[in-house]
Amino acid sequence: MQRVNMIMAESPGLITICLLGYLLSAECTVFLDHENANKILNRPKRYNSGKLEEFVQGNLERECMEEKCSFEEAREVFENTERTTEFWKQYVDGDQCESNPCLNGGSCKDDINSYECWCPFGFEGKNCELDVTCNIKNGRCEQFCKNSADNKVVCSCTEGYRLAENQKSCEPAVPFPCGRVSVSQTSKLTRAETVFPDVDYVNSTEAETILDNITQSTQSFNDFTRVVGGEDAKPGQFPWQVVLNGKVDAFCGGSIVNEKWIVTAAHCVETGVKITVVAGEHNIEETEHTEQKRNVIRIIPHHNYNAAINKYNHDIALLELDEPLVLNSYVTPICIADKEYTNIFLKFGSGYVSGWGRVFHKGRSALVLQYLRVPLVDRATCLRSTKFTIYNNMFCAGFHEGGRDSCQGDSGGPHVTEVEGTSFLTGIISWGEECAMKGKYGIYTKVSRYVNWIKEKTKLT
């Protein structure tokens, strides 16, 4: 034993070699072989497995989906700052455009905790909710729209109204504003409101030439003092309507412009014939205590009207009353817009006519005020429907199939267009061939041609 100890002390290297040989010859039971080890760690190889990531292109799944990435790591994937920024906006807080917040056709661009709407022409605001041009839906104005110097929408209202708090709607500024039905039992019968379409306001006024200088022999019209197929109006439903009495009662109609003036057809009036105007009328054979009678003290036909040349060209006249009318729910003026808007309103496509005229061709006159909704007829169809001249200051309205029309005794009465609950004068009943005849239409004086003249002559002093 002493000898062994001496050998170990003198030859430590020998001992180490012996131990190493023993270990190498022993069977290893701690580690699995290569094949079995792979069965336990069965993990798919990654895209760049075996390579240094710093030297390969980034992978979106590896960089940002398996674990949260930084902007720089995302930049490695896209290799483009702009594309990385677009991805980053949604990656950080989701897609803010998912709810489609942009209105009126706006395009949404996502941002971090926010979004941006790219608005089409005519709109602005956070969600493109603000109209900035009158060309689109009248700028959301209830009545009139004008573009300011910086191309912003400025709404306005006709006389007797003021802008509401929203700067879009119009509200009454006087007790009985024009064009409004205020009798409670008839307010439910107000005709369907007309909503502004998209309009090209630059070209809204037709490029028409008034044929002022045409000389033409007097034409022989049949029954051209021209509501057939209409309905009984309720008291106060058309408070701007008046009836004219002269040699015979209810020979023509008219509309209240203001307390002192009536507008009617020029062919209705004769110099030297006494005319009485009755406002607030409903049943011409009954006294309903809503009527107001006034005498006409002055007749002003349009300066281009000449019955000797043509009885229905420039067929418009103004009547001055001896005493002002007292405005109330049964006696209310009709609204008159400017030339541009009167023309736009007419193009809405349908209007209402009213009167006490004959209820059928050569038949009896109506006792109760009649009204009828009539569609506008395109000019080409209008011209083809008659052998008589249709001037540019006239328009056609009615039904091709016949059966409904204005008729004798309705002449001078109103053709009105309702705009968001307020009625505007767009025409004056003038003439036609018979009444409600198939293929024939009622012919009306186009008020847009005469609004400046009306307003100039009827100013209240």
Rank of each mutant, 00 (worst) to 15 (best):
Lys293His: 10
Asn328Gly: 14
Tyr115Asn: 12
Asn283His: 10
Val199Phe: 07
Glu323Ala: 10
Lys137Gln: 14
Gly125Lys: 06
Gly94Lys: 09
Pro120His: 10
Gly363Glu: 06
Phe395His: 02
Asp338Trp: 03
Leu32Met: 11
Phe123His: 09
Glu67Tyr: 08
Val183His: 07
Thr342Met: 04
Ile214Phe: 04
Val451Met: 03
Glu418His: 12
Asp315Leu: 01
Gly50Ser: 03
Lys89Val: 05
Phe55Gln: 13
Cys18Val: 09
Val277His: 01
Val277Leu: 03
Gln143Met: 06
Glu434Asp: 10
Phe144Lys: 01
Leu321Gln: 00
Asp338Lys: 07
Gln237Val: 08
Ser385Glu: 11
Thr158Asn: 05
Ser114Asp: 13
Asp232Phe: 07
His267Asp: 03
Gln57Trp: 04
Ile210Leu: 10
Gly246Lys: 05
Gly432Phe: 05
Thr194Cys: 13
Ser107Leu: 06
Gly236Met: 08
Tyr450Pro: 00
Pro175Glu: 08
Gly439Ala: 08
Asn113Gln: 09
Ala173Gly: 09
Leu346Arg: 09
Leu369Gly: 13
Ser204Tyr: 08
Glu259Cys: 03
Gly254Arg: 00
Cys108Gly: 01
Asn127Trp: 09
Arg358Asn: 08
Asn306His: 08
Ile40Phe: 08
Asn5Met: 09
Glu82Met: 15
Lys247Glu: 05
Pro324Arg: 05
Pro120Thr: 06
Ser169Gly: 08
Ile316Ser: 01
Ser448Asp: 15
Ala317Pro: 00
Phe71Trp: 12
Trp261Lys: 00
Ala380Thr: 09
Lys126Cys: 11
Arg298Trp: 02
Glu98Ile: 09
Gln216Glu: 10
Ala265Glu: 00
Ile262Gln: 00
Gln370Lys: 11
Cys97His: 03
Gln185Ala: 03
Ser217Gly: 06
Ile214Pro: 07
Pro175Gln: 07
Ser423Leu: 13
Leu103Ser: 07
Val451Pro: 00
Cys407Glu: 03
Arg404Tyr: 15
Glu208Leu: 12
Pro120Asp: 13
Gly403Pro: 03
Asn393Asp: 08
Val377Ile: 10
Ile344His: 13
Ile40Pro: 14
Arg379Gln: 15
Val227Cys: 11
Asn313Ser: 12
Cys117Gly: 02
Ile256Met: 02
Phe55Ala: 13
Leu211Ala: 04
Lys168Ala: 13
Phe31Tyr: 15
Pro101Gly: 08
Tyr115Gly: 09
Asn113Tyr: 04
Ile336Cys: 00
Asp249Leu: 07
Glu285Asp: 10
Glu456Pro: 02
Ser11Ile: 14
Pro235Ala: 11
Gly246Arg: 04
Cys119Arg: 03
Glu82Ile: 10
Phe176Arg: 05
Leu52Arg: 12
Ala366Glu: 14
Asn113Asp: 14
Glu72Gly: 15
Gly94Thr: 15
Leu372Tyr: 11
Cys97Lys: 03
Val248Gly: 12
Phe388Ile: 11
Gly357Cys: 07
Trp118Cys: 13
Lys234Ile: 09
Val374Ser: 06
Pro177His: 01
Met8Arg: 08
Gly254Ile: 00
His282Cys: 04
Arg180Ile: 04
Asn310Ser: 08
Asn452Gln: 13
Arg62Val: 10
Val56Glu: 11
Thr29Val: 14
Thr194Asp: 08
Phe224Lys: 10
Glu66Cys: 03
Val269Ser: 03
Trp431Ser: 10
Lys457Asp: 02
Ser354Val: 15
Phe144Arg: 00
Thr133Asp: 09
Pro12His: 12
Leu346Cys: 02
Leu346His: 09
Lys362Val: 11
Asn283Cys: 04
Lys260Ser: 01
Phe345Ser: 01
Phe176Ile: 06
Glu159Met: 05
Val416Ile: 13
Glu76Ile: 15
Asn151His: 09
Val202Gly: 07
Glu10Met: 10
Ala250Val: 08
Glu165Ser: 05
Gln408Phe: 09
Pro333Glu: 02
Asn59Phe: 08
Glu401His: 13
Leu52Tyr: 09
Asp198Phe: 07
Pro175Ser: 10
Cys102Leu: 01
Arg162Ser: 10
Phe78Val: 14
His361Gly: 06
Lys89Ala: 13
Ala366Asn: 09
Pro120Val: 10
Glu456Met: 06
Ala397Asp: 02
Ala250Met: 07
Ser448Pro: 02
Gly442His: 14
Asn135Asp: 13
Asn100Met: 07
Trp453Gly: 01
Glu129Tyr: 05
Glu72Val: 15
Cys119Leu: 01
Asn42Glu: 08
His267Pro: 00
Asp378Arg: 12
Gln96Asn: 13
Gly272Leu: 03
Val183Thr: 13
Ile299Arg: 05
Thr458Tyr: 01
Ser220Thr: 08
Glu86Gly: 15
Phe144Asp: 00
Gly160His: 03
Asp95Pro: 15
Gln2Phe: 11
Ser217Tyr: 06
Cys119Gln: 03
